[in-house]
């Protein structure tokens, strides 16, 4: 699977970076047909969740659906 290959491409990076990249790539894939998708807020949701986990503010794990 090409998606798996993309994911494996970043396996050398720390989990937080892998999570962000994986979820942002899924988001970009979903909006690939739009010339200028406005994804700032959706990317912010992804980054904020991971950042809060990094700071120990929330323990809720974000479930990734590949």
């Amino acid at each position: 699977m090409h998606h798996e290959r993309l994911r494996n491409l970043f396996s050398g990076y720390e989990p937080a970076i892998q999570t962000i990249i994986d979820q942002v790539l899924q988001l970009e894939q979903a909006y690939i047909t739009m010339d200028r998708p406005r994804l700032k807020e959706q990317i912010d949701d992804i980054v904020e969740d991971v950042a809060k986990q990094e700071l120990g503010i929330t323990k809720k794990p974000r479930i990734s659906r590949a």
Partner: peptide, 25 residues
């Protein structure tokens, strides 16, 4: 500010990681 600093750090490193891998891929 701490949260923002972490977000800056994570997004920059994620973008850099994509940049590093992109050319090779």
């Amino acid at each position: 500010a701490n949260l923002l600093q972490t977000k800056v750090d994570l997004t920059r490193r994620s973008a850099n990681a994509i940049g590093e891998m992109y050319e090779r891929f």
